[in-house]
């Protein structure tokens, strides 16, 4: 277990008329090697929650443990925590500032006080991992395309070599190609480097495709925490929270209602295609 969230609540403006409860008694365990997707309606508290995980926001109540040590202890090194738990914000390209891409990626490791060699080694590795061509390393980050900028920014966090990488809607505002590139690169990091991933997303299709654990937030609380297959079965409850299941789930439920003999817990196109083919074959045999 890398991270443990224990009874965490976050209340803004306590005691004033504008009091808002952003998080309500959250309990969570995050284990090594998981690919977790975090979904929820805007304002459900998911962005607030991820900022607690690397200590950017301090909980009003409750505790968070990194490898068994409470991060709110006086002798706990926050900077070190942030290198272990990397957080990529929404539109991360808005944080680029150096004169060239390579220098920008070096910013994180430099803050960790590493040697020059180690800094550059990590920066190279990170840029390679996000698949940014070497010809861009020396160009200004502001001259890159939208998708490239975003990958450079992700490399900036990756260069700190985090054990857990949290990404807050990393594909927002990109075109389909840019979306696929980013997601593929995240999946590769998960597969090849064994980085634990927490992906905040609005796309149920992406969630279904990549995640093996799905956490649903609603009004500051955890509504579901299970495998995507099992969570998407509750698509009617998800709809009440302003969410939805992948379109495939709706297709399968519709088919079942229309009298086809199919299971409804398919969440990807491939699964659904296989299921429909099997059903059609079976029906032929039955005839």
């Amino acid at each position: 277990m890398i991270l443990k969230v224990e009874n965490v609540s976050q209340i803004y403006g306590a005691g004033t008329p504008t009091e808002t409860i952003a998080l309500k008694n959250i309990n969570l365990e995050i284990n090594e090697g998981e690919f977790i997707a975090l979904i929820g309606h805007t304002g459900s508290g998911k962005s607030t929650l991820v900022q607690h995980l690397n200590g950017l926001i301090k909980a009003t109540e409750g505790k968070i443990y990194y490898r068994g040590r409470c991060i709110y202890d006086d002798d706990f090194n926050m900077k070190e925590l942030r290198s272990h738990v990397g957080l990529v914000f929404q539109y991360p390209e808005h944080q680029l500032f150096e004169e060239d891409v390579f220098k920008d990626v070096c910013f994180g490791p430099k803050n960790l006080g590493l040697s020059k060699e180690e800094i550059e080694k990590r920066a190279y590795a990170a840029l390679k991992a996000v698949g940014l061509d070497e010809s861009f390393y020396k160009s200004s980050p502001f001259e890159l395309s939208g998708g490239q900028k975003r990958r450079a920014a992700i490399a900036g966090v990756l260069a700190m070599e985090p054990e857990v990488l949290i990404l807050d809607e990393p594909t927002a505002g990109l075109d389909p190609l840019g979306r696929d590139e980013i997601l593929d690169c995240i999946y590769k990091m998960y597969k090849e480097k064994g980085i634990t991933i927490i992906l905040v997303s609005h796309s149920m299709e992406d969630v279904a495709k990549y995640a093996d654990r799905l956490i649903v937030m609603n009004k500051g609380e955890i509504a579901f925490d299970d495998t995507p297959h099992r969570v998407f079965k509750h698509y009617k409850e998800l709809e009440k929270m302003g969410l939805a299941a992948p379109q495939v789930t709706y297709i399968m439920n519709r088919l079942k209602n229309e009298g086809f003999a199919v299971d409804t817990d398919m969440i990807t196109v491939d699964e659904a295609a296989d299921a429909i083919m099997n059903m059609m074959k079976l029906e032929k045999i039955n005839d």
Partner: peptide
């Protein structure tokens, strides 16, 4: 500010020169 802090930036500690320098990653973006 939070995004840079997530990359290990420190806006609070250090002497005056260090602090002025630490504003660069905030001000340029």
């Amino acid at each position: 500010m939070k995004a840079q802090m997530a990359r290990g930036a420190d806006f609070e500690n250090g002497n005056i020169i260090h602090r002025v320098k630490s504003m660069v990653p905030l001000l340029i973006p």
